[in-house]
Each structure stands twice: as structure tokens, then as C-alpha cells.
Amino acid sequence: MRFAHRLADRGIPIWVRFVLVSGLPDDPANVDAVAAGVPTVERVEVLPFHRLGAAKYAALGLPFPLSGTPPPDAGLLERVRGQFRDHGLAVI
């Protein structure tokens, strides 16, 4: 966030990639804080969490810390995208 504010202080447009993980950053207050937090954010790409990295953890002999976490459903994905749109941001 400090870096984002440094860019904003210089008037530099920012594109954000927001990784949506069910039960973690999906709280409505958190999404609103991210959406309103930096004035030069122009676009947000909402990336739904997936488990594609689990095989890499297994190959390294490491436990995958989000193994029990489900991907976000379509309703949650649309709610979060809508929150960003409500703040006037372009959403992908």
C-alpha cells in the first residue's frame, strides 16, 4: 500500500490485481477499503483463487496452506466485482 500511495502522490495511474480467496480478503469492508484506498487506481482485475499451485507444493514436499479453501463461487465473484464497479473502477 505504501508503494501504491507513492505512485498516487505522483499522479501515476494504477491497475490492481485483486486475488479473491473465499473467507480471506472477501469481507465487504476490506473490498471497499481497497476500492477507495488509492485515488489513482483505474482498473481492477479480480482473480478468483484456484488450487493449481497445489501440485508444486506436493512436488517440493510442502503442505499446501490453502488446501481446504474452496474457490469463490459465482455469486461472491460478482459481488466483489460489483463493489469495485460501485467505486467507479473498471473491472475485469
Rank of each mutant, 00 (worst) to 15 (best):
P25R: 10
V38D: 05
A8I: 07
V21L: 14
S67M: 09
I12F: 05
G61S: 07
L76W: 07
L47Y: 13
F3A: 11
V80D: 00
P72C: 08
L20R: 02
S22Q: 15
D27L: 08
A58C: 00
R17D: 11
G11H: 08
P28I: 06
L66H: 12
E42T: 13
R10I: 01
G61H: 09
V41S: 02
R79V: 04
L60W: 11
V19C: 11
R79Y: 04
L47M: 15
R17Q: 13
A33P: 07
I92P: 10
M1L: 10
V16L: 15
Y57H: 13
G11M: 05
R10L: 13
D9E: 15
G75T: 13
W15Q: 12
F3G: 06
P39F: 12
F3Q: 10
P71Y: 07
P25M: 10
G37A: 05
V91G: 05
V44A: 04
H5A: 14
G75V: 11
G68D: 15
R17C: 09
F3E: 10
Q83L: 13
D27H: 15
A59L: 12
V46Y: 08
S67K: 14
D32M: 12
R85Q: 08
P28Y: 02
V16P: 00
L20K: 05
D27C: 06
V91T: 02
H5W: 14
A4F: 09
E78C: 06
D73W: 04
A35T: 03
A58F: 00
G37R: 07
A54G: 07
A59I: 00
V41I: 15
P25H: 12
P71M: 11
A4K: 06
P13Y: 04
E78W: 03
V80W: 01
S67Y: 08
F3Y: 11
G68V: 09
E78M: 04
P48M: 08
G11I: 00
A90Y: 02
N30K: 11
L77F: 11
D32W: 14
I14P: 01
P72F: 09
V41H: 02
P28C: 01
L20I: 05
R6I: 04
G53L: 08
G68H: 14
